[in-house]
Nucleic acid binder design. Structure first.
Lengths: 126, 126
DNA sequence: AGGCTAGGTTTCCGATAGGAACCGGCAGGT
DNA sequence: ACCTGCCGGTTCCTATCGGAAACCTAGCCT
């Protein structure tokens, strides 16, 4: 070991760790991926992302907005319309996110196979 | 919109989504990063990763092992020694993980600045 | 015998996640 | 005029999770 760069990132309170924890979240990656091609409405995201609830979507969007990764546009229209889009800072995440999603697409089956192949409960003394 | 490839990944139960949720976890990214340069012992990870508890580390490692991303070597020695290392499948995650950590290192400060600059409570009617 | 080591589990409790139900304003149907 | 539906969001409530600290196992050292 000992080959890691500066001691940061492992330091629990450094900006890099906080940034990772911001996106290392069940919904964040999927939401950012959904926004990666342009502005999307709240309702569109709800329909697009299977399994997410309005509450968790709003919560996730708020957090990303507070951290400057996305911007919210609320149009004062009759049926309310709200669009979300990546900020320039948020756009810098597109590449990392796409690498992750591509990895997931390529290896998702292998990961699931591993679950069936060797559940081995470990039991540290079997 | 409508430019997303196949409808998978948004489907909530497809392998790709499950794979993303496996690694989109507070500790998983940091742990995988810690293993990215070779085998590491449990205790080394505890010292390396600031803020993690033994419980969460073990839990995270077990989950990664069950999904075939890492392998566990328990040496039957006097003071027990346990090493963890990436499997070939897990090694395919190094690149995506490194992109994430590099992004975090480069933009962590900007993300934190955004928090101070515009906490704007939103209040959907300001 | 008692203490040390290293990895892991258990216990307890506060914090969080998440679904369902509700809110608010306005357009349109009747 | 009233009821209903649309959209985004919030509130309520519970099940689950996260984390600190204590405990466990097993063998060597003193």
């Amino acid at each position: 070991m000992s080959g890691f760069g500066p001691g940061d990132f492992f330091l629990a309170d450094c900006p890099a760790r906080l940034a990772v924890e911001l996106i290392a979240d069940k919904w964040t990656v999927v939401v950012l991926y959904g926004l990666s091609q342009g502005p999307v409405r709240h309702g569109e995201l709800i329909e697009l992302i299977g399994g997410i609830s309005r509450k968790m979507l709003t919560q996730t969007l708020r957090r990303l907005e507070a951290h400057g990764l996305i911007r919210r546009h609320a149009y004062a229209e009759v049926p309310p319309r709200v669009e979300y889009e990546l900020t320039p800072l948020g756009a810098t995440l597109i590449d990392p996110i796409h690498m992750l999603t591509e990895w997931a697409r390529a290896n998702g089956d292998a990961v699931l196979d591993a679950l069936d192949t060797g559940p081995e409960p470990v039991a540290h003394g079997e």
